[in-house]
Amino acid sequence: MKPLLQKVALVTGAGHPKGIGRAIALKLAEQGATVVVTDLAQASEDMSGAVSQLKGQGVEAMAVAVDVTQKTQIESCVQQVLNRFGQIDILVNNAGVGVGSSDFTELSDQDWELSFKVNVKGVADFSQAVIPVMQAQGGGSIINISSLLGLGAVEAIPACYTATKFAVIGLTKQLAVNYAKQNIRCNAVCPGSIVTQMHSTTLELIAEEHGISLEEAQALEDANIPMGYSAEPSVIGDAVAYLASPAARYMTGVSLPVAGGMSPGI
């Protein structure tokens, strides 16, 4: 029995073939969910590929172009999903950016503004658009993709990224408290070192910070992971699928590290 049969899941930032969002969408489909993928309009080809993959798993799927910094696009997306499927049971706020210098004094206003608009306000606006739908349905599950850097700081990471990922944890906990009695659960997943397109950017920052090659940067990162390696995006998909399922029905307000034993902060 697939635990997410007859559920509709919406996953933001799910276009890139090697991204966490795509892996999450595929895992939810594997569990039986109908899946809606969103990403920026320029990723339309990637989103089409995602829909093909999802349909190949025997589920219904659709793609909607959405810039999460534009509230009208979010509201339009939610309405399109309701028009087609009539419900939204699972929202995965995965869209995120990592920009800026590891030197705090070099961060620009644009770095801070983009980080906040995507990593925090985008999560808040999508949740605000979907919560009334879940209230009318009698419940739902919101899963926010934060980061291990939402729990603690790591050297050579832009402060605007760390700060906004901490904010995602705070938002998650507040929504969990606010809507628990209405059967709307809100949890966060905090990925550690995951091999994605953003991971390549992180390695470049580490290499620049220490004056080493990308290969040496990867070895340095792996040396700080108790399990000794960076994981594939599918491990985040597994965690999200669990939190979205009935097996996690008594879990809300959780910030779940999926990080091979890395544990900065508390």
Rank of each mutant, 00 (worst) to 15 (best):
A95T: 05
G96K: 08
G96Q: 05
G96A: 10
G98W: 02
V99K: 06
V99H: 04
V99M: 05
G100F: 01
G100V: 01
G100D: 03
G100T: 01
S101E: 08
S101V: 08
S102R: 10
S102V: 02
F104Y: 15
F104W: 14
E106F: 08
E106G: 04
S108D: 15
S108M: 15
D109W: 03
D111E: 04
W112Y: 08
E113V: 01
E113T: 04
L114V: 06
L114W: 01
L114T: 04
S115C: 05
F116V: 03
K117Q: 03
N119W: 04
N119C: 10
N119D: 13
V120D: 09
V120G: 07
K121G: 06
K121P: 11
G122Q: 03
G122N: 05
V123F: 11
A124T: 14
D125I: 01
D125R: 02
F126M: 14
F126K: 02
Q128R: 15
A129V: 00
P132N: 01
P132M: 00
V133E: 07
Q135A: 02
A136I: 06
A136S: 14
A136D: 12
G138H: 07
G140F: 07
S141C: 13
I142A: 10
I142D: 11
I143A: 06
I143W: 05
I143Q: 06
I143M: 06
N144H: 02
S147N: 08
L148Q: 07
L148I: 15
G150Y: 14
G150W: 12
L151E: 13
L151Q: 12
G152A: 00
V154S: 15
E155N: 13
E155W: 12
A156N: 15
P158H: 00
